[in-house]
Write a protein that binds this DNA or RNA. Structure first.
Lengths: 298, 298
DNA sequence: ACGATTGATAGGCTTTCGCTATGGATCTTC
DNA sequence: GAAGATCCATAGCGAAAGCCTATCAATCGT
């Protein structure tokens, strides 16, 4: 049995006429007759009862009509689904990110992506950078957003955005009144920092301070970047944080730019080099285009 | 999309190899590649991720594999169903019959047919002969079993069986002691008869009596042949009944053959001349063959 | 590094497919 | 009631497709 024969038969069955069906199919009548004959021969039974004046369905023909319609419908549905998946409009997308990135600029990107591909099931896995690399390699996730490029050969990295690092101080702190602050001025301050073992960002900030000639004096070390603002407000000291953090804190805290030579935290899109999913490719394409429009985020 | 392409794709997807799939399909490898390419082109997306060493499915390919299997399964199921209907193995069969025929030899025939075609849904419509003719013409039923041939031009009749008419008398009746009875001896008896308006059989019996030189004296007229035995047992008189009735009555009643020249009730299979259903044709064929083996029934 | 294996491509041949022309049968119309 | 119209089936021919062998490019394993 052939889909063409099914289509042809349905046309004849619906029109109750070879001639009209042939017209509907943009076909001449003889090949239509032949195809129906071939179908009947294959099924070993007449499907149509022909008097030379009208065409009626046999019981087998009635069944064939119902089944044929169902088959064509299923074929069309399959085509639509495969096309959608191929276009990256449906499917799944597993993202890896740390809390500070997730609650920073990534949120806007996710919202933008959801608008273009609302049927894609997105899952964000919030975990430490090292685990994200492992998740990518084991195909648990498709894309990670991390600070710094991994060295694995199977992974590709693209700069997603560059975020200026700013100083967070309590409103009451003397530096809060300054328009800008030099990095070296922070040598004598107490610092709230992330755990450098689990955070590329913490290591990066530390290296910046070393470049500026001092090792930051740590008053408090935290695991979750979310905790930093409340500790600053509570007077534990100052902190160097990504600019995007400023969006979510209260007036107890002031943010001041570092000048001159502000440190910049680079966030990278990381994905497998052999990634085939169009969902992933679409997301990456959108991300780079979307972020390209606004070099600085926050 | 073409069923052949679907079959080919499934083979490649399952074998994870064009070469092996081509072997399985009794096909050389190049046309297989081309068909897959055509399918991918039509769906606008790659289904397979080929490195020159192995073949993997893309997400679209995974979906295509599942959907393709479902489609092929549905096609096969449709073919089986249509074939079965075409062979008359499944479908519906609506029979018309009167109670006396139904509970007589027809029961055996139905049992025999059910053994041959257990999937056919049989329905027996028990109704008066005139209604049966109307039901046949309106396509409510496919086959009727009636005594006598109808005159309608669109209907065909075939002799199904010939049943001898026998005399039913109470055990205590003088005729019960006789080995055989002549029809003319019944001229002075009281008769229990069916309503001649609704029964070909009643009319036939009446005409036999007239041929024998008398008009039966009616002591009781009934609508349903089932009532006759109990009336005979109750002493209402005698009755001329189809031989098959004898099967279901008690020892209160005696049945005696009519000799010489026993009347015979002819039962006909009646069906539409333009009947197309193989179920119906099979039933008729079986019936004539089955009944041919035993000219007398009961 | 070299042979073996895999999928893609090219060219030729056979089969299939669709078209026009025509035939046989039935219904309609004058 | 006969002629025309209409319908499906058949015949014959040209075009398109499907399949084959031969070959290429890339990769893997020894």
């Amino acid at each position: 049995m052939d889909l063409r024969q099914v289509r042809y038969f349905i046309a004849v069955a619906e029109e109750r006429s070879f001639t009209l069906a042939a017209r509907r199919l943009n076909l001449s009548q003889p090949p239509l007759s032949q195809h129906i004959q071939a179908l009947e021969a294959e099924l070993g039974t007449p499907l149509l009862y022909r008097t030379s004046r009208k065409v009626e369905l046999t019981q087998a023909g009635e069944a064939m009509l119902l089944r044929g319609r169902a088959i064509l419908q299923q074929v069309k549905s399959a085509e639509d689904e495969v096309r959608s998946i191929g276009a990256g409009l449906v499917g799944t997308l597993d993202l890896g990110a740390t809390g500070s990135i997730l609650r920073g600029p990534l949120a806007d990107l996710l919202a933008a992506y959801r608008q273009v591909a609302p049927l894609v099931k997105m899952t964000v896995h919030e975990q430490a950078p090292a685990l994200q690399i492992a998740a990518l390699l084991s195909r648990t996730t498709n894309i990670s957003l991390i600070r710094g490029v991994p060295s694995e050969r199977d992974l590709t990295s693209r700069l997603a955005w560059r975020e200026e690092v700013v100083l967070a101080v309590p409103r009451t702190h003397p530096l809060a009144k300054r328009k800008r602050v030099a990095l070296s001025e922070l040598a004598s301050e107490d610092h709230v920092v992330l755990n450098p073992d689990s955070s590329d960002f913490a290591r990066y900030v530390q290296s910046c301070c070393v470049d500026a000639g001092f090792l930051p004096k740590v008053s408090q070390q935290v695991v979750d970047a979310q905790s930093i603002p409340s500790l600053i407000a509570a007077g534990f000291g100052v902190a160097l944080v990504p600019q995007s953090i400023a969006r979510f804190t209260t007036s107890d805290i002031a943010f001041r730019p570092i000048r001159p030579s502000p440190p910049a935290a680079d966030v990278f899109l990381v994905f497998r080099q052999d990634e085939t999913s169009m969902v992933v490719h679409n997301f990456i394409k959108l991300a780079l285009r979307y972020l390209g429009q606004r070099k600085k985020v926050g």
